[in-house]
Write a protein that binds this DNA or RNA. Structure first.
Length: 257
DNA sequence: ATGGTAGCACGGCTA
């Protein structure tokens, strides 16, 4: 079973690439972030033609998440239990015994921005939600754009980036609190020494100079990690014509429990 | 060079 996550930075613009990627990679589940689409404009028919149904939760202009799958999901969740705060950043669905939670964590912008405490509060709230989900779903994947580089290995130049946004100690502590629930950074577990990025800024020719960060993560509960065959970052998608600034990340699981 | 690019119901905001 293959489950992937990809911040597409506008599904309207990136739909041809998403369709091509679905065709070549054939994932069972693809979680999207930054679809930037109102639900009425979600490309349901085009994806159905490609063999994928869609669970989507969007808004105009900003944010937006979706879960594409070849089989019907169950126990669908489209926002926070209390209805959320108007920012479409969370959805979840189950495929058999596997729970998949898809998040677009707030960027935070800068340490002195009011978006920074919002990010930290959002992550604290997510911890509570995931703790509850794990009660009913021991086999769980928490995937998405976390907007946090877990440690210095995940930054092209950690000394230069320092304690800036995406790398500050409170952000990393909030990610650590999620891991303490019994989740594992699957890519890092399988590739302890890898220096690989999932996001490169559009500005300053960051991709050409390979100046990136690994902020798109697949966190797996222990039962899922134990049946993980591999985790890969598809750097080629970032090198494509008119790319998203993020690369897809894909986990392959042994089939069965 | 202390910036740059990309996307968005269109132009200041977000990343």
């Amino acid at each position: 079973m293959k489950i992937a996550t990809w911040n597409v930075n506008s599904l309207k613009v990136r739909l041809p690439q998403v369709l091509e990627w679905l065709g070549s990679e054939q994932p069972d589940v693809l979680c999207l972030q930054e679809t930037k689409l109102a639900d009425a404009r979600f490309p349901v028919a085009e994806l159905a033609d490609a063999g994928y149904r869609a669970l989507y939760h969007g808004q105009p202009t900003y944010n937006g998440v979706a879960i594409l799958s070849r089989t019907p999901p169950s126990d669908v969740r489209c926002d926070w239990p209390d209805g959320g705060d108007g920012q479409a950043r969370l959805c979840a669905a189950s495929f058999g015994d596997l729970r998949v939670v898809n998040v677009y964590v707030p960027n935070g912008q800068a340490l002195d921005s009011d978006k920074y405490p919002y990010k930290l509060q959002w992550l604290e709230r997510l911890r509570g939600l995931i703790a509850g989900e794990l009660q009913g779903w021991p086999q769980l994947l928490l995937v998405g754009d976390f907007n946090i580089a877990p440690d210095t290995r995940d930054v092209y130049d950690a000394a230069d980036w320092g304690e800036g946004i995406l790398c500050s100690a409170p952000e990393r502590a909030a990610l650590g609190a999620l891991l303490e629930l019994g989740l594992h950074d699957s890519y890092r577990k399988l590739h302890p020494d890898a220096r690989a990025w999932s996001w490169w800024d559009y500005r300053a020719a960051a991709f050409r100079r390979n100046q990136g960060l690994r902020i798109d993560l697949i966190l797996a509960s222990s039962p899922v990690l134990s049946r993980t065959r591999d985790v890969v970052i598809d750097r080629a998608a970032r090198a494509a014509e008119r790319p998203s600034d993020h690369a897809p990340v894909c986990i392959t699981l042994e089939s069965g429990a």
